[in-house]
Simulated scan of single mutants.
Amino acid sequence: MLIDTHCHLDFPDFAPEQAEVVARAKARGVGRMITISTHLSRFDRVKAIAEAYPDVFFTVGTHPLHAHEEAEPTVEEIVALAQHPKCVGLGEAGLDYFHDQAPRALSQRVFRTHVAAARETGLPLVIHTRDADDDCAAILREEMGKGAFTALLHCFTSSRALAETAVDLGLYISFSGVVTFKNSAELRETVKVVPLERMLVETDAPFLAPVPHRGKRNEPAFVVDTARLLAEIKGVSEEELARVTTENALRLFSKMPPLEAAA
């Protein structure tokens, strides 16, 4: 079984066939999905999706691309929303200097607010970071020094140095379909040095469909194709990759019930 640790089932792309998308994932052995928040103001939407499907869980938070569009969240607000029984993590929050839509100071402040909420709740923080390696690493080191928290770098496409920093700090790293792209040779080299016990797998659906689905709308079922390549890179069987990454996901997102209690 695999767990798609990062998808966006609340996006309009899935509205016409949400139930079918979930069913296709289950048919390919994707036992659980985590639908990730991008807007705190859309909490009710992601919550409703998780409540509709036994094996779908969700997070709460504000994406850095939307930090300037939303009311700036407080730790107390995030913590309160995270009390929902199917909310298993916070975010995605972090830094995005590639699109650079929100003021950097605001993004950094909102990022730190999510870290504080992760520290208070004990829930893992899903971190989005793009073209912001130095600032992301600095914030992670500084915040970890204030008190431990759990987190993962999702859809990892950054440098080997940031991956090593994350591992040193006890964080997890999640790989998406980007690792299957022809021009991702450097990323595949980074996969080799990330310990298997710190790896997760995701789709980031509806974006970044892996080969052989490149150019199509991504969906949770396609996480199987990413996992297949990750297994090849790590030199393990697909079954072993699935077993370990599922164990990792359950360890990190520890609020999810054990697999035998899924239904």
Rank of each mutant, 00 (worst) to 15 (best):
P206D: 03
P195H: 04
V179G: 11
A166V: 15
T226S: 11
N218H: 07
F149D: 01
L152A: 12
K182M: 08
L162Q: 12
D225W: 05
E164F: 12
G170L: 08
T157A: 14
R160G: 14
T180I: 08
A163N: 06
E186Y: 11
S174Q: 11
L229C: 14
I139D: 09
A205R: 01
S174C: 11
T180D: 01
K216V: 06
V194L: 02
G215K: 02
L162M: 13
G215T: 04
A166Q: 09
F156R: 04
C136S: 12
H154A: 13
A137E: 15
A148W: 12
P210Y: 05
P210V: 14
P195I: 01
R217D: 01
R228Y: 09
S184D: 14
Y172C: 10
V201Y: 00
D168E: 15
S184M: 04
A231T: 11
L169D: 06
G170I: 10
F175V: 01
V193D: 03
L153M: 13
L162R: 01
E142N: 08
E164N: 06
V201K: 00
V167K: 06
E143D: 11
S174P: 06
A138L: 12
K234L: 12
I139Q: 05
A166P: 03
S176L: 02
H213K: 11
N218R: 03
D135E: 15
S176A: 10
G170M: 08
A151P: 03
D204V: 02
G145V: 07
F149K: 02
V193L: 02
E164W: 09
G170R: 04
S174M: 08
L153I: 08
T180K: 00
I233M: 13
G215Q: 07
S184L: 07
T203K: 00
A185C: 09
R141G: 04
G177T: 09
P195Q: 02
A151N: 07
H154P: 08
P206L: 04
T157S: 15
A166C: 15
F156W: 09
P206R: 03
D135M: 08
V167I: 15
S158I: 14
Y172P: 05
A227I: 10
L230S: 10
E232Y: 12
N218A: 14
R198M: 01
E219A: 04
I139E: 14
N183Q: 12
K216A: 08
E143K: 05
L171T: 10
A231C: 14
A205N: 02
M199R: 04
M199W: 02
H213S: 04
S159T: 15
T157R: 07
V223D: 06
T203W: 00
D135Q: 13
V167R: 05
A137C: 11
E232A: 15
L162C: 04
D168H: 07
F222V: 07
M199I: 01
N183M: 04
L169M: 14
E189K: 13
L140C: 03
E197G: 05
E143P: 09
